[in-house]
Design a protein around this nucleic acid. Structure first.
Lengths: 219, 219, 219, 219
DNA sequence: CATGAATGAGCGTTCATTCAT
DNA sequence: GATGAATGAACGCTCATTCAT
């Protein structure tokens, strides 16, 4: 998937030879590595992270980490693949038959919740894209573009039917992405600037809903 | 400024001895290094960047780069200081006496233009904050917090006067930041997903204006 | 011991985790490194020596040397600790109950033999002290000072009892140190000036005995 | 002289072209460099010292230091030549016609005073010899050996005449060198071990005189 | 005379990766 | 499976030296 053409999932980056035969301990350790890798890569990006950081965080030896994933890059790619799936689900859920405002606000809210629940995943992609998306470029150009284009058509239909203000559907999506991921990617900043860190996501949700649906001007 | 308490600007990280006496060639080369450093650090962050990348980009020898700035970190800090100034001007310009919607939209637009004109600067700070803001934490906690708090009070007054919908001023600012910087930080992604890259900022501006002022629901 | 307060020996500078569990190959390679380090540091001092010299002399790769000792300084400190022990034994052996002249002459002779057997160790400390004793200052101020003070009291008692000429015990020790270590530290010079290098230590011993016990003036 | 055959002084390491035409300022600056070089080289040896340390200590620019002496080695050699002269004078003064004990003790005392007055010079040579005397080997093998041999003959004559105890003249000289230079080379150590640093050289002189002339055994 | 500017070579150290066990 | 041991390449940085002014 990542760095490959599209959705085919034939390339195994692991040491497993018989396709679907991984012992329980293998699966477990791979997960430990992926978890540790998420922690590290999401903070420092690919180039700024070290295998030692990952193996320390996973409480394994460096050599053992590289037994499961042959290279640092293989860990990174596996992590991206692992994370991509969960990261894009919500967009798929937008239902052309639903109420437009409700569907979009629902999507925005689920993205916001994702930012709250898995900020590291968000930061992982932020780092990857900041560095020019060397690994997920193919994914962006194919899978994501297809999905986004499809949803844009849905939104455009809603607009054409007069159910939404006339905006660019694509940029609408961008705004939802930007304003929700911000709370994950820039959490250090938001936590510094907010006096009551506990209410951040509540306040964000309220303000986001108002802006998305009604805008600033009083009705 | 960076990594120091607040606005004092006495520590020179350079080889200059008499405070304001730098030869023409010094100024020139320092600028070349800063430009190259912006290019590199904005892509790979502090830890992911190397002095060799910077010296290559500046077409100078590594040793000569380190003649002007003694350490990699000194380059990074000089770059941050250099960039912080331009990065924060627009927020200051918000005028309590102006028309609320116009002031805020004007601010958002100037931020968007900044993202268009200096995307690298935006990415530089994105990287810094993603990695935990080790260098600009003090700046965030002092200068920025003060400025933001002050402007939040202005916005709150406008809301209290019924001139704006009741939102959290702070999160309104976050929304403006997020949705404008997105076009700088994630430009790789937006350029892939947009069919007509030339109209990106135009479309973004239009959509942002609609959302910010009126929201999606038709009036 | 070195650069620490006194005799506590808990800090291991090595990669070993469980205190006393070093594999055979670990012990072996560490010894090879220490041997090579003695050769190099004793000639050029800490600052004048390079890790590459040491790794060459040990016939290992530079990276492997730094696998066993994390820094050049760690090698140096380990070497000093390794060498301090053997270097100070003889002084401890001086017996208050023995014959004064015999005890002192025995001590001087054993120091001379040490200079013959381990001139590199002597040069190592000579270099360290010449450069201001940055690493063994604490040892000098505590362990050594205590030992020397104690032995000075013994000698003073002998003098008070009329068994020795009235000299400063401390400077007597200095004289023994200086005149014996000279043959290690300045061996290059002594070997150039002596026509029969084989008899150096024999002649030195004879002359030292005469001076120490009887002086130049004929009795 | 140094590193050359013997006493001929034709090799000028300086930039001067017309043999004996150096402006006052040239002479002055050369002296400043030599003084600074003594300070630095005597502490860290040739390899452990840097040109920057010397230029800092001389309050000159690095480039200017290297204008007067083309290389670091040239500074070092000039310094050695400069210092050798003063360092060996006293031995020459030993008078075959004088009283043996008085002549030798007088020599020892003047060496001790030299150690007190110019400890850096002593340390400079100690460093050089510790590192294998790469620069002054020729001097040692020729000038010094000749001088020492000559004085040994004088001492041997005195012994043969029954005026001195039968010792090896060469090693007698070694003992004088060792026990006097010790107070310069190991001053860090002696100062730590002596409770009253002011009386070090007084006590040393007394003890040295007793040992040299009478030995430890009571007469 | 004097010095900023510049650099190739080398320094101590880190790192991703390999290999033997 | 798992891990100590090992290393070439590269990293940030220093240094002696050169050169233009």
């Amino acid at each position: 998937m990542v760095n490959g053409m599209t959705t085919n999932r034939t390339t195994k980056t692991s040491a497993a030879k018989s396709p679907e035969k991984k012992s329980r301990i293998q699966v477990q350790n791979r997960q430990r590595i992926i978890d540790a890798a998420l922690e590290v890569f999401s903070s420092y990006g690919f180039r700024g992270s070290t295998v030692a950081q990952i193996s320390d965080s996973a409480a394994m030896s460096k050599a053992n980490v590289l037994y499961y994933y042959k290279t640092k890059q293989a860990i990174y790619i596996a992590l991206l693949e692992h994370t991509l799936v969960e990261w894009l689900d919500p967009l798929t859920d937008i239902d052309p038959a639903g109420d437009p405002a409700e569907e979009l606000w629902s999507y925005a809210r689920s993205k916001l919740e994702l930012s709250k629940a898995s900020p590291e995943a968000s930061r992982l992609f932020a780092n990857e894209i900041l560095q020019g998306a060397p690994m997920i470029r193919n994914f962006l150009e194919n899978d994501l573009k297809e999905l986004v284009t499809s949803k844009c058509r849905v939104i455009q239909t809603w607009i054409d039917e007069g159910k939404l203000a006339p905006v660019s559907p694509l940029h609408l999506i961008f705004f939802i992405w930007a304003s929700t991921q911000h709370y994950a990617d820039f959490s250090v900043q938001t936590e510094i600037l907010c006096d009551s860190p506990d209410s951040i996501f509540n306040d964000a949700e309220q303000t986001l809903k108002t802006l998305l649906l009604n805008g600033l001007l009083p009705r």
